[in-house]
Write a protein that binds this DNA or RNA. Structure first.
Length: 491
RNA sequence: CGGGGUGUAGCGCAGCCCGGUUAGCGCACCUGGUUUGGGACCAGGGGGUCGCAGGUUCGAAUCCUGCCACCCCGACCA
């Protein structure tokens, strides 16, 4: 089972990989680039799903499901879109296998070749817009606000558990609107839903911003994003919300009659977050002892470890624990009583720490005598004895404190790692020594952005929404600039 | 697709340079016992076509040739 982790500060990448495995979240599958999400990891994802799903419904959306396969021709309808995705698509060419004549196993039946190849969806804009064409005729059909929970496949060359896998789970919202303004408003609304989720539930501060032209989603007019900072100083794009303009409506001929009986193309948006959020969650809070989960997303919020000698003591402790457990559960707190009798307490402590359970309660014979329990919090690793009398409210408060504390800690770290620079020299220096976000003036051209990326590997993560106008000169070209943008090395 | 590396038990590795009995270690696993307030200990046990194919040799995990797979670093990306 779980045993030591590499030091986070020494080899971040090794630390991350080991943590994912030892916290029992996921592992590599036999298929290259794909991932097996294990029950504990999936339980965290399910908490994320439930929370997000409710937020989507609260903002007027419904769920639906569209097919996994996309006819190849659909993908070529929107020029920018195909440009952006074609290179990394998995393609289905046949529909049948047969036994090899030499008995060596099964082979693809050459007679079963598809007339038109099918693409395994890398994203669903094309199937969905071709369906929307049939669903939308009138302004009365709008807005159409749908979301789907699905898997998608992008044949990435290099993969990392949760952060980049060939197949990943996500949610993709696709909406159609009568006006440009309404579509932009939707794009912004969903960006703020994501930001709220990241900050309130994941305890992970994010910068809300828009992408530059070169980082924009293929086929979008504007890409809004939330960007988070990981503990190694690299940025992670945690969610995107795209204003699609009328691009897909035009490509798929989706029109409606407006109130004046004028035929118009509809305005679209799409937005998504993926299992990559799991990677973000891990890298935002975890330490050398393992995962640190925000209480609101922890599948197990409280674990109770009995410390006993013999059956009799265990029976007494179990009785006491049953009371505590049911009272906590009545408050909506999820509790695990770890009474596995083949493992020692020390092992269990380490194991649950690795898994990031926010609060641990230890109760032994000594506690029964004194009417106490020992409570340990995962975020600070502080341990303290409490009277059993009001233990439920102590724990409930503690969970709130932990949620708040890890957000605060991550926020301090993030803010300490946004550095303003005035020159390219300073830019490179900060990038090398400190990392994090670098706030700098940029002349607004893709050429400069590309040069900087080539020379330093840093990209423009976003132009923050709350940016102040500020006269300055581009750190690279020296041309005039009106605002700062955020650069960083990114995942 | 370029550059580097690794394939030996479920996992992590040693052995290979310099060929030689039944291929070894740690973890995990099984059995029994003692333990249990921070990752237990003792004893016993099971598990391997040494990545694949060919070659050299009396003899190959070890030497040679070819192939395959995977990992890391780049280009691509949520």
């Amino acid at each position: 089972m779980a045993k030591g982790l590499p030091k986070r500060s020494e080899d971040y990448s090794a630390w991350y990989n080991e943590l994912v495995k030892k916290a029992d979240l996921a592992e590599n599958s036999p298929v290259r680039g794909c991932m097996v999400i294990k029950p504990y990891g999936f339980a965290i994802w399910e908490k994320m799903q439930q929370t997000l799903d409710k937020m989507f419904k609260d903002t007027g959306h419904s769920n639906a499901y569209f097919p996994l396969f996309i006819p190849k021709s659909y993908l070529s309808r929107e020029a920018d879109h195909v440009e952006g995705f074609a290179k990394e698509c998995a393609v289905v060419t046949h529909y049948r296998l047969k036994n090899a004549e030499d008995g060596s196993g099964v082979v693809v039946d050459p007679d079963a070749k598809l007339e038109e190849e099918l693409i395994v969806r890398p994203t669903s804009e094309t199937v969905i817009w071709s369906t929307y064409k049939n669903w939308i005729q009138s302004h009365r059909d709008l807005p159409l606000l749908l979301n789907q929970w699905a898997n998608v496949v992008r044949w990435e060359m290099r993969t990392r558990l949760f952060l980049r896998t060939a197949e990943f789970l996500w949610q993709e919202g696709h909406t159609a609107h009568a006006t440009k303004g309404e579509a932009i408003k939707e794009t912004e609304t969903m960006l703020h839903v994501y930001a709220k989720f990241a900050e309130e539930f994941m305890s992970m501060p994010v910068v809300r911003g828009v992408k530059t032209e070169s980082e924009r989603f293929a086929g979008a007019e504007e890409t809004y994003c939330i960007e988070a900072l990981m503990q190694d100083g690299k940025a992670l794009q945690a969610g995107t919300s795209h204003f699609l303009g009328q691009n897909f409506a035009k490509a798929f001929d989706v029109t409606f009659s407006d109130k004046n009986n004028q035929l118009q193309h509809v305005w679209g948006t799409s937005w998504g977050v993926s299992t990559r959020l799991m990677g973000a969650l891990i890298m935002a809070h975890s330490d050398d002892e393992g995962l640190v989960l925000p209480p609101k997303l922890a599948p197990i919020q409280v674990v109770i470890v009995p410390i006993y000698k013999g059956e009799e003591q265990l029976a007494k402790i179990s009785e006491k624990v049953a009371g505590i457990k049911s009272e906590l559960e009545a408050r909506g707190i999820s509790v695990k009583f770890d009474d596995r009798d083949t493992l020692r307490p020390g092992f269990k402590f380490a194991d649950w720490e690795m898994k990031g359970v926010p609060v641990r309660v230890a109760i032994g014979a000594r506690d029964l005598e004194n009417n106490t329990v020992e409570i340990a919090r995962r975020d600070t690793k502080e341990k303290q004895s409490y009277s059993l009398d009001n233990v439920e409210s102590v724990i409930a408060d503690l969970l709130d404190q932990i949620q708040e504390n890890i957000f605060h800690k991550a926020l301090m770290f993030r803010d300490d790692n946004i550095t303003k620079v005035e020159s390219y020299e300073e830019f490179k220096e900060v990038l090398e020594t400190k990392g994090g976000f670098i706030s700098a003036h940029w002349d607004g051209t893709p050429e400069t952005e590309e040069k900087i990326q080539e020379e330093t590997k840093a990209t423009i993560r976003c132009i923050p929404l709350e940016n102040e106008e500020e006269e300055g000169t581009c750190i690279y070209s020296g041309k005039p600039s009106t605002q700062r943008v955020l650069f960083a090395k990114a995942y």
